[in-house]
Simulated assay, not measured.
Amino acid sequence: MRRLAILVVSFFLLTLSVAAQAGASVTEEVKKTVDHVVQIVSDESMKQPQKEPQRRAQLKKAIGAIFDYGEMAQRSLGRHWKDRTPAERKEFVSLFETLLENSYSGKIESYHNEKIEYLKETVEGDYAEVRSKVITPKRDEYTLDYRLLKKGGKWMVYDVIIEGVSLVSNYRGQFGRIIANQGYPALVKKLRTKSNEIKAL
């Protein structure tokens, strides 16, 4: 149960990154986005069943604005990316975006007053990492680090590290095994099916 709770909160906290503003640190921008998402999931007026579509739309917009889906999709596909045509790459990014953006909406909404402590930020050129610690109401703790890339003057998350495990590396392993055993078309078929299931909810 503890591990499930960590995963539930973790995906909520995966929705963290934002365009950097002049004079603000990467950590300050991450915190600003955290506060925004917390506001959405904590708004009592938005918790009514009839408000679910509106609430989900707000969360989708927030997530879509802060994740570099193209970068994440390319890194998740790894060495197989270079073999894809422009059309295949476009479709894969779209399917990957739907997977991340919608799969765990219910889990994102399971936020319950977790405390976030920002520990350290490192910036090297166009790359940055913000390290943080999440403390649950029961005082359980786990690390959550964000890797960001600056594109067009904006800091965008391209990977999230939960307790030392990379989200992108995890997907790359899953996708790589499917491609090795069944081929790339099988992976796309699975992602299409999942995407259709999500959109039908």
Score class of each variant (00 low, 15 high):
residue 6 I to K: 12
residue 6 I to E: 13
residue 7 L to T: 10
residue 8 V to F: 06
residue 10 S to F: 00
residue 12 F to Q: 01
residue 14 L to A: 04
residue 15 T to R: 08
residue 20 A to N: 13
residue 20 A to L: 12
residue 21 Q to E: 15
residue 23 G to Y: 06
residue 29 E to V: 04
residue 29 E to M: 13
residue 30 V to R: 01
residue 33 T to W: 06
residue 36 H to S: 10
residue 36 H to W: 01
residue 38 V to T: 05
residue 41 V to L: 06
residue 42 S to A: 09
residue 45 S to A: 11
residue 46 M to N: 09
residue 50 Q to P: 02
residue 53 P to N: 13
residue 54 Q to Y: 08
residue 54 Q to V: 13
residue 55 R to E: 15
residue 59 L to E: 03
residue 60 K to S: 14
residue 61 K to Y: 01
residue 62 A to L: 09
residue 65 A to P: 03
residue 70 G to M: 06
residue 70 G to E: 14
residue 70 G to N: 11
residue 71 E to S: 15
residue 72 M to F: 06
residue 73 A to R: 02
residue 74 Q to K: 15
residue 74 Q to L: 03
residue 74 Q to P: 04
residue 74 Q to E: 10
residue 78 G to E: 02
residue 80 H to V: 02
residue 80 H to I: 01
residue 80 H to W: 11
residue 81 W to H: 00
residue 81 W to P: 01
residue 85 T to D: 06
residue 86 P to E: 08
residue 87 A to L: 11
residue 89 R to D: 01
residue 92 F to L: 06
residue 92 F to V: 00
residue 92 F to Q: 03
residue 93 V to Y: 10
residue 93 V to N: 07
residue 98 T to G: 09
residue 100 L to F: 10
residue 101 E to V: 11
residue 101 E to L: 15
residue 102 N to T: 14
residue 102 N to I: 08
residue 102 N to R: 14
residue 103 S to V: 07
residue 105 S to A: 13
residue 105 S to N: 15
residue 106 G to K: 12
residue 107 K to G: 10
residue 108 I to P: 01
residue 108 I to Q: 04
residue 109 E to M: 15
residue 112 H to V: 09
residue 114 E to A: 13
residue 116 I to Y: 09
residue 117 E to G: 12
residue 128 A to V: 05
residue 134 V to R: 02
residue 135 I to F: 13
residue 136 T to L: 15
residue 138 K to M: 10
residue 138 K to P: 04
residue 140 D to C: 00
residue 141 E to Q: 11
residue 144 L to D: 02
residue 146 Y to V: 01
residue 146 Y to I: 01
residue 147 R to Q: 13
residue 148 L to N: 03
residue 152 G to D: 08
residue 153 G to W: 13
residue 155 W to Q: 08
residue 155 W to Y: 14
residue 157 V to Y: 02
residue 158 Y to F: 15
residue 158 Y to S: 07
residue 160 V to A: 03
residue 161 I to Q: 04
residue 162 I to H: 05
residue 162 I to T: 09
residue 164 G to C: 09
residue 164 G to D: 10
residue 167 L to M: 15
residue 168 V to P: 00
residue 173 G to Y: 11
residue 173 G to E: 07
residue 176 G to Y: 01
residue 178 I to F: 04
residue 180 A to S: 05
residue 183 G to N: 03
residue 187 L to V: 00
residue 189 K to E: 06
residue 189 K to V: 04
residue 191 L to H: 04
residue 191 L to G: 05
residue 192 R to C: 05
residue 192 R to Q: 14
residue 193 T to E: 14
residue 194 K to C: 00
residue 195 S to C: 00
residue 195 S to F: 07
residue 195 S to E: 09
residue 198 I to V: 11
residue 199 K to W: 09
residue 201 L to P: 05
